[in-house]
Amino acid sequence: MAILGPNGSGKTTFLRCLMGMLKWTDGRSLFDGRDTNTMSPKEFWEKVSYVPQQRMATSGYSAFENVLLGRSGQVSFFGTPGKADIEAAEGIMEELGIIEYRNRPCSSLSGGEFQMILIAKALVSNPKLLILDEPESGLDFRNQLIVLNTLDRLKEKGISCIFNTHYPKHALQKADVSLILGGEKPIFGKTGEVVNEKNIENVFGVRAVINELVVDGETIKNIVPLYVTGRKD
């Protein structure tokens, strides 16, 4: 699922409410039909993982130590990670193709490399739901693709993803359903239906066309922005 909207439309606030870091003024969060307020933090965070909006890596920990921190829900309060935790961390880094960063300090990694470490850290606890806040923003052409393709792979593995983005194209290409914030009313529905030229113009104030490319027999949707129309705010 994608949450699409321009800067300042409340995407991050929405996610934080969803996870109980902020209180809903109206409504509640349900997980598998259960009100998340009735779940203990430990129980909730065993099923859900969160990758916050990227910030520069400041910690001097190595990439591996950082990924290992994701196992904190599995390690007892006064304990240290055991063999199973270390294997899980190595496994996920192997799977995401970032095992070669293992011993590098996080502060020496590039934005794209560090984002993958953060995703690995979120996945190492085997969550059912992964929530990412603008996972691809600030990354270059290639790294955006690496991160977005990782989301596809998670879908195949049966892990649901909710991600924020301000790129309509990424919602269109990666999400089954989308929530569009920033218009008069939030719009929710199947991505193919709600992410259309009219809604993009209403929410972003950009005239864009959606076209389809056929590559190797596969249909790929693409969005080409044309010009800025009257901005709604």
């Binding site: 934080r16 965070w45 065993e46 859900v48 916050p52 910030r55 130590e65 829900g73 309060f77 006064f78």
Partner: peptide
Amino acid sequence: FLLRWRMNLLSLSEDELTASGTNVKLL
């Protein structure tokens, strides 16, 4: 000494700390 590994979490941002599921106040 017993908390040595869990103290590594303290370098994370507030939201990440919450998302770790650790009882941050107690820690």
